[in-house]
Each structure stands twice: as structure tokens, then as C-alpha cells.
């Protein structure tokens, strides 16, 4: 069953002023429970605006957002509960940190949910472990930590609310490759354990290819496509037309296909490419040096 659904979702910024702009234009979408979705799109394609509708931070100008089949705006008073069910981590979330200790900052969300001390403590420890923050860090000031650690504290702050749907807007922006892999690794492990729905906005096709079951592509305020990862990357040329990129390795294999070496499959991760190539080499019996 679809956990998140949008029907004709439209959002217009500054309606009626000279700066009026349609940021999301009639988007119909169904996201199933337990999926890991990559969200792609150009700067200004409306993806950030779209995800802010999922937890009711923005109210649609037109259309509906359904969570578990219920319109989230049906009763305005319930909007806070929606925010606990759909956790949203913004871009550069480390700038929202404000508490004196890492523990307190992670506990801010659960505390707002009205949980008791013991439950809060349990959740903070659990999430800190999930995101790879050692217990020795919990009593430190978050402002003394490194950039990557701060980012993880901020992500943990949302994860600790134990949302059914977790949305992360560019969780790896501005991090070095090691920090990036660490965060993505922890998110993947978290997804595997909790089996909740996760949406990740990213500019890096390599990142998305590495984790997503499905990919959602936004283009010029409209939904360009929402489909399985391989099906989306199979449309490499269309995706290039709207100014986005497919992973490097997919490009290499498209090139190979043009040269006459067809593997009959679309390749979008290094692991898979390695396997295919080694198999091909073994078939040819070219085992001279390897």
C-alpha cells in the first residue's frame, strides 16, 4: 500500500506578487512502504518544495497529500503528528543544532513528541548507534565536533523521532568522500534494520545508483518520471536532455554498446560492472594476467 501519495499537488510561491512562481506543478505520485527512493532534479526543479509538502511544512496551493491514505490537511490540528510520522532532514542540517550537548540536541524531537525520559534516553542511544556516533560524544557540545559529525548529530535528531518516512535533502552536500560514504552507509544500514520508507535528494548519480530502489526525477516543476532505478537509468539520453547525468559507469557501458560490445543489461554501479566485465573476460578465456 502506498504510504505517501500526492494528487495533483501544485504549489505557487508568492501568489499575486511580481515574484510569483509555480514551484510544483500537478504532481501525482505514489510511494510504497519500505522503499528507498532517490530524488533527482536540477537546482530549482521543485524537488525541495515537493518534499516540504510531505510533512506539511508547506500547504499545497492545489491538490492533496495523503499519508497512509489520509489527507494530511484534513484536520489542521493533526499537522504536528504528521511531522513526527514524516521526518524531514533539511540541507546542511548542522545549522539547526542549538543545544549544549549532543544528547540534548538529538532528544529535542522526541521531547516534543511528549515521550517519557526513559523512552527518550533509549531512542537517543539507539539512533546515535545507528548513525555511528560513539557514546563518548553524547555529553560533548555539538559545536566542538567536526563537520561530518555535526551533520550526523542533526540527522540523528530527526531519526530519533522514529518516523515512518524519513526524507533527507542532500545529506552529503559539502562533505568529503569519506564522510559521504560513512553517512550513506549508516542510512542504508538504518533502512535495512527499521524497514521504513526513505527518500534521499541527491545530485550525485553515483550515490543514488548505489542505494535507491526507485528514482523520482523532477524537471521544471513537473514530475519527469518515477520508476525503478534500472528503468530510469535506461533512459540515459532523455535524462541527459533535461540536464542531469547518469552515473559515469553507465556512460562507459553505453559507449561500449555503441562500439559493439553489448552486455544486454544496464549498468549503474561499479560492483555490477566489475562482475560483468570479469565474467566476460573469463568467457573469452583471457586469463593471462589475472
Amino acid at each position: 500500500m502506498a504510504i505517501l501519495e500526492t494528487q495533483g499537488l501544485t504549489y505557487v510561491y508568492s501568489e499575486g506578487s511580481p515574484f510569483q512562481k509555480t514551484a510544483v506543478d500537478h504532481v501525482d505520485l505514489k510511494i510504497d512502504e519500505g522503499e528507498m527512493v532517490g530524488v533527482m532534479g536540477h537546482t530549482g526543479s521543485g524537488k525541495s518544495t515537493l518534499i516540504q509538502h510531505f510533512n506539511g511544512l508547506l500547504k499545497p496551493t492545489l491538490g492533496k497529500v495523503l499519508l497512509d491514505g489520509e489527507d494530511i490537511w484534513a484536520d489542521k490540528k493533526n499537522i504536528r503528528d504528521v511531522r513526527f510520522k514524516v521526518g524531514l532532514v533539511f540541507q546542511y542540517p548542522e545549522y539547526q543544532i542549538f543545544e549544549e550537548t549532543v544528547f540534548k540536541d538529538i532528544a529535542f524531537g522526541p521531547k516534543n513528541m511528549g515521550l517519557d525520559e526513559a523512552e527518550i534516553r533509549k531512542r537517543v542511544l539507539e539512533t546515535a548507534h545507528d548513525i555511528g556516533l560513539g557514546e563518548e560524544l553524547l555529553e560533548r557540545s555539538p559545536f566542538e565536533l567536526s563537520g561530518g559529525q555535526k551533520r550526523r548529530v542533526a540527522i540523528a535528531g530527526v531519526m530519533a523521532m522514529n518516523p515512518k518516512v524519513l526524507i533527507l535533502d542532500e545529506p552529503t552536500a559539502g562533505l568529503d568522500p569519506a564522510g559521504r560514504d560513512k553517512i550513506l552507509g549508516h542510512i542504508k544500514a538504518y533502512h535495512k534494520r527499521r524497514k521504513n520508507t526513505i527518500l534521499i535528494v541527491s545530485h550525485s548519480m553515483e550515490d543514488i545508483a548505489g542505494f535507491a530502489d526507485k528514482i523520482l526525477v523532477m524537471n521544471k516543476a513537473k514530475l519527469f518520471c518515477y520508476d525503478d532505478t534500472e528503468k530510469v537509468f535506461a533512459r540515459a539520453e532523455e535524462i541527459a536532455d533535461i540536464g542531469l547525468d547518469v552515473p559515469q559507469i553507465t556512460k562507459v557501458f553505453i559507449g561500449l554498446k555503441k562500439q559493439g560490445l553489448d552486455f544486454g543489461k544496464d549498468v549503474y554501479t561499479m560492483e555490477y560492472a566489475k562482475k560483468l566485465l570479469l565474467k566476460k573476460l573469463a568467457e573469452k578465456g583471457g586469463t593471462k594476467n589475472c
Partner: peptide, 16 residues
């Protein structure tokens, strides 16, 4: 506005 949105997403009551 960004910070407000981020804290609201963590359930902070600002308008209510």
C-alpha cells in the same frame, strides 16, 4: 525561515 522550518520538522511549536 529555514531554521524555523527545520525546527518545526522536529516538532517545535512556533506558531501554535
Amino acid at each position: 525561515e529555514k531554521i524555523m522550518a527545520a525546527q518545526k520538522a522536529r516538532g517545535a511549536e512556533i506558531d501554535s
